[in-house]
């Protein structure tokens, strides 16, 4: 029997992988991939908990909403990365350190 715990376990695995990618990868595209993984971990959680919604399908609806948003976010993020590359000739996050004081 596949219980809720299994879903959460997979979701946590996905989130950790995404988090690792976000924190460690030296390529902005891979960081973006990490972010997508984390969003998908959240979406998986939403769908899994949606079972306890009692027929209102709130979880599923929210998941769809999140997927659409994520797609939009990816489009915007890719555009930003493109511009960053144009500006800095690099997409390594370590090279872009203008935030320091």
């Amino acid at each position: 029997m596949i219980s809720l715990t299994h879903f959460l376990l997979v979701s946590a695995l996905l989130f950790s992988t995404g988090l690792y990618a976000v924190l460690a990868k030296k390529n902005a595209i891979l960081v973006l991939v990490g972010i997508e993984l984390m969003i998908n971990a959240a979406v998986l959680n939403l769908v899994a908990f949606g079972r306890y919604d009692g027929g209102l399908y709130g979880g599923q609806t929210f998941a769809l909403f999140a997927i659409v948003l994520a797609a939009a976010a990816v489009a915007v993020a890719l555009a930003i990365i493109l511009n960053v590359y144009k500006h800095y000739k690099s997409i390594n996050p370590d090279d872009i350190n203008d935030l320091k004081d």
Binding site: L19, V22, L23, A24, V31, P93, D94, I96, N97, D98, L99, K100, D101
Partner: peptide
């Protein structure tokens, strides 16, 4: 590590 975004994120985490 000034200005390194990933370091900031790590610290926050």
């Amino acid at each position: 590590r000034k200005g390194k975004i990933q370091y900031y994120l790590f610290s926050m985490f």
